[in-house]
Design a protein around this nucleic acid. Structure first.
Lengths: 349, 349
DNA sequence: ATGAAAGCGCTAACAA
DNA sequence: TTGTTAGCGCTTTCAT
């Protein structure tokens, strides 16, 4: 029994089994049926490989085959229920395909985005799911140059297929929900509904804002530009803006549409300075879902994007090799306040 | 100007620049000072590489150098504020070191754990941070066999250094906090404090439970075994157990120590069936922090583990090459109810 | 049914 | 200061 220095390689297994490296390779990579290697040989090799603790060196395989077996997911941040759910689904889909999932966050920072995509390309990522980057064009260019198949998620990109939430439909439902659960006794500017958060330039916000405007116009008869406060997604900014709004109109409005969880974090921060009654009088909606938000001291209508479905569709697009910049919209669910228990909980802890 | 078929390689740049592949390699991998290559040559090569959109093939480099430049983090789930914060810190630390972070979740599933670690090893991961796996011994064995440096996080392992929260201290503070904010008018079994969640066998739970018992004994004079319900970390299980408890003792107890966010998710699920008054009468504590929990309709004392510090220490251990199974404990913070705003918000959205 | 040999892109001796 | 060469571990024709 000859000694092996480090991790066993195909050569070691070949020597130990009396077969050639190429035979061992075929057996260990599962292509031995096609190469018509005898079952006996295959079993012997697998036996030895197992007992030696052999595991394929994916760097070598990747180099030789010209691909790596890795798929990437780019997120703005892990620290958010919506994106975290995406990660979970992404891992499931990747593993189902025998691929290695690599999830990275880039904090909506354009430099970080291109640097990170560059890194992934260096590692010969096979395909990339791009969720919520700030500069899809730059990222897409990099991918195209490197021949990396890619799909946009959540926010569409210009040069490849995109899977997004049906932002118009979701926003329309949410807007209706908060409008119809408004309470009376609001006067002046406070009687009007407001939307806070998001970036006017981005597709999701644009659609959500349009739906908000449409529904508000339909229900209330009119809408002013200042009822839409697209102050980005950062909590701190949102807090400042909600503060300004409250000062300007003399209190919370009758209805408030909060455009994403991160914005909601900022808003809730500000709410702590108000009394519970003040808050409870307002009808609050949030485009995105978090189970704990479901249980807050005031009712929050939420839109839960179907991240599992979105990720699944993204993978289908990658599998099928489509690269036209189609836009696929997935309808989200409207979640009634305090209805956390209508949906199955995760059994993971 | 000669044509290049696919992605440019070092050979292409060599040809284009009139230098040799090894010179190009030295320049492009930043070791050219040591090789005393002239600044002029270096600049010329960098120029050309830039204009050709060259990027290092990390699979080739990794294969040649015998390491990959990747570090891994194994989590139970992304879908949890504590672990999500870990991911964020992990990425920062990894990138600071020029490494590529790979974060994967394994859902506390022993098979998934070993399969995933196997995959990472196949990819020649350089080191691994292992947070909250169910079978540290199996995972550690794999790493050791493959010569992968590793550090345990959150839950200690037997064969390598571990960085964990100071569970005893954190739990003692939290227990005190809820005991001292109990309200009167509880009789019989309901007057007693209870702890729910966790696994008796695991280090974190063991320490937290011990502290809970010590402090309860100190403050209340005694504690019964049935005041500790170590029912695992799964939300569904926790819901069932809290339900049983309430039936058994006739309502919520005066004080409830919830051992982790996932358990809290289950508990809050059950709370929805109670009235706000019922809940508000109980003093609730949660070992772990979530900003939205801070804003619930009832006060929750929380322990916020210092995940940034924990991750930083884990990397220091990896950097320094220590592999004795030392245990490093990082003191967590006690967060008073509704004090979300004492801490800086993320500015990421 | 199996082996020999070339080569993926890069780096590190060793030469010059 | 730079070039030549060998080889990391694997896969894949092509031969037999």
């Amino acid at each position: 029994m000859s000694e092996i220095r480090g991790k066993p390689t195909i050569k070691d297994i070949a020597r130990l089994s009396g077969a050639s490296p190429s035979t061992v390779s075929a057996v260990l990579s599962g292509t031995w049926q096609a190469r018509r290697i005898s079952e006996a040989t295959a079993e012997r090799i697998q036996e030895i490989a197992g007992s030696q603790g052999y595991s394929t060196n994916m760097q070598a395989r990747g180099l030789r085959r010209g691909r790596s077996g890795m798929v990437g997911l780019i997120l703005p941040t892990h620290d958010n229920r919506f994106f975290a759910e995406m990660s979970q689904s992404f891992e499931v889909e990747a593993r189902q395909r025998g691929l290695c999932p690599v999830v990275v966050s880039t904090r909506r920072d354009p430099n970080e985005e291109i640097r990170t995509v560059g890194t992934l390309i260096s590692y010969s990522i096979e395909s990339l799911v791009i969720a919520g980057v700030s500069d899809p064009t730059a990222v897409g260019d990099l991918c195209r140059l490197a021949g990396v198949r890619h799909v946009y998620l959540d926010l569409p990109g210009p040069d490849a297929p995109s899977v997004v939430s049906d932002n118009y439909a979701g926003s329309a439902s949410l807007t209706r929900a908060i409008l119809f659960s408004r309470q009376g006794h609001f006067e002046g500017l406070r009687a009007r509904p407001y939307l806070i958060g998001g970036v006017v330039g981005d597709h999701a916000s644009a659609r959500r804002i349009r739906a908000f405007r449409d529904v508000v116009t339909e229900v209330c008869g009119a809408i002013d530009d200042d009822q839409v406060i697209a102050c980005g997604y950062a909590p701190l900014q949102a807090r400042a803006e909600i503060d300004r709004l409250v000062r300007r109109i003399g209190g919370l409005p009758s209805a408030l549409f909060v455009n994403s969880l991160t914005v909601f974090e900022g808003v809730i921060t500000y709410f702590q300075t108000l009394t519970a009654e003040d808050i409870q009088r307002a009808a609050i909606g949030c485009y995105d879902y978090d189970p704990f938000v479901s249980a807050l001291q005031f009712a929050v209508h939420m839109v839960r994007q179907n991240s599992a479905e979105m990720v699944a569709r993204a993978f289908e697009l990658i599998d099928s090799g489509v690269d036209r910049p189609d836009l696929i919209e997935i309808e989200p669910d409207l979640i009634a306040p305090r209805s956390i228990y209508d949906r199955p909980l995760s059994d993971v802890g």
